[in-house]
Write a protein that binds this DNA or RNA. Structure first.
Lengths: 249, 249
DNA sequence: TCACACCGTCTCGCACAGTGGAACGCACGG
DNA sequence: CCGTGCGTTCCACTGTGCGAGACGGTGTGA
């Protein structure tokens, strides 16, 4: 029963204003009367709300989501730093954390007029083809890269790096520079510079990035700002900022 | 079963790194073996994660929380505006939405060195004793104020307004000025200026505020900035910015 | 207007799943 | 060592969950 209810919750999609019972039943494979009943219970707990013509996820879910320890402290501490970086560069700013072979975006400040960036607050992207993901891999524990390679390097654009050897070379460069770049590997027209946010042992626990049009973003100009913000955030989190030159492979 | 699982989820508290099984069972009133089993299922769905010595809410819950329509679009559009306001004033910035007799904070940029503000991203406060809450009441439908009065005006500090008549007077002033102020009504030493964010029909759907020390925040200085940001956000959301002078009671 | 498709809601016979007291091994502190 | 509390497992007991089908309502197209 619990699994079915949770399966229903998973069928709500970002951007949808509401979803009808029949559609939710179809998507989840749960019979309509069962779905109806489960949704009523979820509604009683405010995880789901009724709309005129269907259901939507409830505000209580947002509230619970903000209690999650893995992102809560980070997001709260990071947001002013991200705001600074946004102000300084006027480009779209991201903060992401690692989860398995992927990254999860826990904060995003979007600049107007930017490219159609595939990222979404609360959304996931494969680590290997995103700036933040590569920063997390370069400065993360080996198991993180193992997980990515085990999951396979999927192609998202013609520019996506799908050879483990090439990815390894990229990561070595990133470790040397303390900065990761991405050029249309996750989405067309998208460029990005990212820097790791490290904990007390120097392991990347998050990454900050600036994202813009690949034919317009001056990565050399914004890179030091990204790195600066990441170092400051690392310090604010009680971490040890990684001196990248000390990571020479 | 579902209710019990959801009751367990509700027992995780902000700021806790982890919670043990026995404590969760105590808090929720669910028997230990049952709690153990339910947590295992929640873990399978990634809503809960195991830690060394207990459990914590899982990142998946954050992801689901970011799909919630009531805050998602607003938060995404609002964050750059809030970043602007944060940069312009260097004070703590909030964005809140109404829910029943309370407000829920959907974004917050904290300035260092500020007062111990009782608000929390994803948290709730009574509407009647917060700047954002009063802005939402002054520019909201009458049912919203009815709900607050029905819930009762609870006292949070010696300065909390608990007489319906006084609150009504405050709301009238707010409607005239287009701005709500709060002086130590929600917490000691806390002052705040808030402005409504309105939809196409002119009803407040959210509110923005600046919060700082009551003996230091120059509300007259920051008020126009708050109102400016709120008006800009209203427009960005497709709303009709309320010309406050047209709301003369 | 009528027929059809689809919606959300409810019923009830059927089937299986949920529950928690008790036991156990382990860890910690006095 | 003993007592306390932890997390984990077991199993007898019982309670709950499930969905095919029916129904009334709505919307659309011929």
């Amino acid at each position: 029963m619990l699994g079915r209810a949770l399966a229903l919750l998973s069928e709500f999609r970002p951007g949808e204003h509401e979803v009808g019972l029949a559609e939710l039943a179809r998507r989840s494979g749960v019979a309509k009367p069962t779905a109806h009943r489960l949704l009523a219970e979820l509604e009683a707990w405010m995880l789901v709300e009724r709309t005129g013509r269907g259901y939507r996820l409830g505000l209580r879910l947002f509230e619970l989501g903000q209690v999650v320890p893995r992102q809560r402290d980070l997001q709260e501490t990071a947001t002013p730093f991200l705001a600074d970086l946004y102000e300084a560069t006027r480009e779209t700013v991201h903060l992401a954390v690692p989860d398995g072979a992927e990254v999860v975006y826990v904060q995003k400040l979007s600049a107007p007029g930017g490219p159609d960036i595939p990222s979404r607050l609360g959304g996931r992207m494969p680590a290997h083809c995103t700036g933040v993901g590569k920063a997390l891999l370069a400065f993360g524990p080996p198991e993180r890269l193992d997980a990515v390679l085990a999951a396979g390097l999927t192609r998202r654009t013609p520019r996506t790096v799908v050879l483990p050897g090439m990815l390894g070379k990229q990561l070595a460069t990133i470790r040397r520079l303390g900065l990761a770049e991405e050029h249309e590997e996750s989405g067309p027209g998208v460029a990005c510079v990212a820097a790791p946010v490290t904990d007390a042992s120097g392991v990347a626990v998050a990454a900050i990035s600036i994202t813009g049009w690949s034919n317009r973003l001056d990565t050399r100009r914004v890179a030091p700002a990204v790195r600066t913000a990441a170092l400051a955030l690392s310090r604010a989190l009680g971490g040890a900022p990684v001196l990248s030159s000390l990571q020479e492979p």
